[in-house]
Nucleic acid binder design. Structure first.
Length: 601
RNA sequence: GGUCCUGUGGAGCAGUUGGAGUGCUCGCCGCCCUGUCAAGGCGGAGGUCGCGGGUUCAAGUCCCGUCAGGACCGCCA
């Protein structure tokens, strides 16, 4: 080692010790006759003092990489710095070696100053020298370790699965990789290891996990990157409760150690339907109340056409209350209309209750009968001074989701979110299917998700009502993990495919290898996958998953550091077989649509 | 694909109803300085105002287009 101690570990007990340190110049304070340098390494910062005889230190600049030898001493009386862990002492240098110099910095390596995202990503190696970003990396490493410890204690095997594979049917667009040895054929990068982990269950591994990189070619967000990580888990011979118990053990350990928060177990469970009815979301933020109230029956018979139209068509009318919302200006109330329109709704009807008289006012109030207005406050649980927002639609879920989004916005604007609270829940009993635009059905989770016991033998009777053994774990309104019991009976799988309109040929073409495996005694199995970036983001208190990824990409999928993606050369293009000519006919492939097979070129 | 915000020396920001010279803080370079910890003092260098077009006597400022970054919707478990 070219150093004897880590800078951040030095304490008063080291006084009198001669140490050699190595690290970076975090800051220098040059007084002419004496120079102070804050020396930073991964462990922290310590003040190094250069006296007159160490004149070479004048040439030091920020972020020079240096090796310093000197004696640890207590700082002179009154010069201690209680802000620093090493603030009681300093190192008086007797030797200085500049290991490497630093050019003028394109961005400050300083915890105080914030640079733009693009610049931070371009110089991510400088960004990560800062304590906040560096801490996020260390936290994530620790999170991995905690999860691995729990899983190994429980006899899980860490098994890697391919990243060059064929499409698995998660539903997102695949990233594709041309195959030089078979021009015209392509690998897909996995959207998740879903099918492989099920094969590992057939293989008798019984307990599998992997911190797995996944790839989805969709539009990106603050919490979505083209490549992301799942803590992926699958177990044989278990029930839903077993998976949930494991999930709670992992989450409990993570939050205990990394967020200093003891999660009360069992984590409350709410059914998907209750979550939609009460919170208008399948990932409800339970840090605050502001629950939805259904008014379909209460308002039955109303002459207000917006509501009557929805009710008569068998739809839904509901409301959500904004505490104190009556004090909003006309401009603010109009702002809600723009807010609603921005997410595709026609608008957001509202009534405000006068703070003194409790009288209902606002454009919608004129359209409601005396009787409806009279009991409204009680029906929705509103007080004088509150505002009531309404949504009505023939599509129950659509109206609930609008109110659910309004609920989140209300909490934000009314300051109801307590940032110090961690509110977890499991959302269980999710629906198996949802209707497609073409009048068919599609799997909400994925087509291998098992119907629950109640629906196992009759999900075809009412596909819109059938429930699955599927569960999501939600933290403060973020889905951090989800999973399901899988179908292991061939007959049930066949019936699900039938309902989804997947023929035997198509099924065999898309994932025949899994169906083939399921012929040979597949065990009952279930699993869960945690969105690891999102989980670490929450633990780090960050508001973007970019903060917990070492080298993230921008919204456009661009990496400002490497400049990826780049065009390829003509030679690469030819060798990769990107332009191989399609054959007129042949066996199909891919996850959907007709494949374009090729002639060898 | 849609809506919105941002783009001004290396960094972070200001720039009024369009009007004389684009200003501040940090950093950078030089000099001074023995107890600072966001050290201080003096001096200096550094800018196609993202890019293209238009309106105007005159555009950093107004309009159109475009590029880049960000937030959201659609999409995506």
């Amino acid at each position: 080692m070219i150093r004897t101690h880590d800078a951040g570990t030095l304490r008063a007990t080291h006084a009198g010790t001669t140490v050699t340190l190595a690290g970076w110049v975090a800051r220098r304070r040059d007084h002419g006759g004496v120079i102070f340098v804050d020396l930073r390494d991964a462990s922290g910062v310590v003040q190094v003092v250069f006296r007159e005889e160490m004149a070479t230190a004048h040439a030091l600049r920020n972020e020079f990489c240096v090796q310093v030898t000197g004696e640890v001493g207590r700082r002179p009386e009154g010069n201690e710095n209680p802000e620093l862990a090493t603030g009681e002492i300093e190192v008086t240098a007797t030797e200085l070696v500049v290991l490497s110099e630093a050019a003028p910095l394109p961005m400050p390596v300083d915890d105080q100053i914030d640079a733009s995202d693009e610049l931070r990503l371009k110089y991510r190696y400088l960004d990560l020298r800062r304590s906040g970003p560096g801490r996020a990396m260390r936290l994530r490493s620790r999170a991995n370790q905690i999860a691995r410890t729990i899983l190994h204690e429980r006899d899980f095997l860490e098994i890697e699965t391919p990243t060059l594979t064929r499409s698995t049917p998660e539903g997102a667009r695949d990233f594709l990789v041309p195959v030089r040895l078979q021009p015209g054929s392509w690998y897909a990068l996995p959207q998740s290891p879903q099918l492989f982990k099920q094969l590992l269950m057939v293989a008798g591994m019984e307990r599998y996990y992997q911190i797995a990189r996944c790839y989805r070619d969709e539009d990106f967000r603050a919490d979505r990157q083209p490549e992301f990580t799942q803590l992926d888990i699958e177990m044989s011979f278990v029930t839903q409760d077993d998976v949930i118990e494991l999930g709670e053990a992992i989450v409990g350990a993570l939050w205990k150690e990394l967020a200093d928060h003891e999660i009360t177990t069992p984590i409350p469970r709410i059914t998907w339907h209750d979550a939609m009815a009460r919170y208008g979301s399948d990932k409800p933020d339970l840090r605050y109340g502001v629950e939805l109230v259904e008014l379909t029956d209460y308002l039955r018979g109303t002459e207000f056409r917006v509501f009557a139209g929805a009710i008569d068509a068998g739809g839904y009318v509901g409301a959500v209350v904004m505490p104190g919302g009556a004090s909003q200006t006309r401009k603010e109330l109009d702002g809600w209309q723009d807010w609603a329109k921005a997410r595709g709704a026609r608008g957001l009807a509202y009534v405000v209750l006068d703070a003194e008289s409790g009288e209902a006012r606002g454009p919608v109030a004129k359209n409601l009968s005396e009787a409806h207005l009279g009991g409204l406050a009680d029906a929705v649980g509103a007080k004088p001074g509150d505002a009531i927002f309404f949504a009505a639609s023939t599509d129950r879920r659509e109206a609930q989701e609008l109110l659910g989004a309004a609920r989140v916005e209300i909490a934000k604007r009314a300051g109801l979110v307590d940032e110090n609270v961690w509110a977890f829940c499991w959302v269980v009993d999710a629906p198996m299917f949802e209707p497609t635009e073409e009048g068919g059905w599609t799997a909400v989770h994925h087509p291998f998700t098992s119907p629950n016991a109640e629906w196992m033998e009759r999900f075809e009777d009412a596909p819109d009502e059938a429930l699955a053994y599927a569960y999501d774990i939600v933290c403060n309104g973020n889905e951090i993990g989800g999973g399901s019991l899988r179908i292991h009976r061939a007959d049930v799988q066949r019936r699900v495919f039938d309902l989804l309109g997947i023929t035997a040929e198509e099924a065999s073409d898309k994932f025949g290898f899994l169906l083939e495996a399921f012929k040979y005694g597949p065990p009952p199995h279930a699993g869960i996958a945690f969105g690891w970036d999102r989980t670490c983001m929450l633990l780090a208190g960050a508001d973007s998953i970019r903060e917990v990824i070492a080298f993230p990409k921008t919204r456009g999928g661009f990496d400002p550091l490497t400049g990826a993606p780049t065009p390829i050369t003509a030679q690469q293009r030819t060798e990769a077989g990107v332009d191989a000519k399609p054959k007129p006919a042949g066996p199909t492939a891919g996850t959907s649509g007709v494949a374009a097979p090729v002639e060898p070129s």
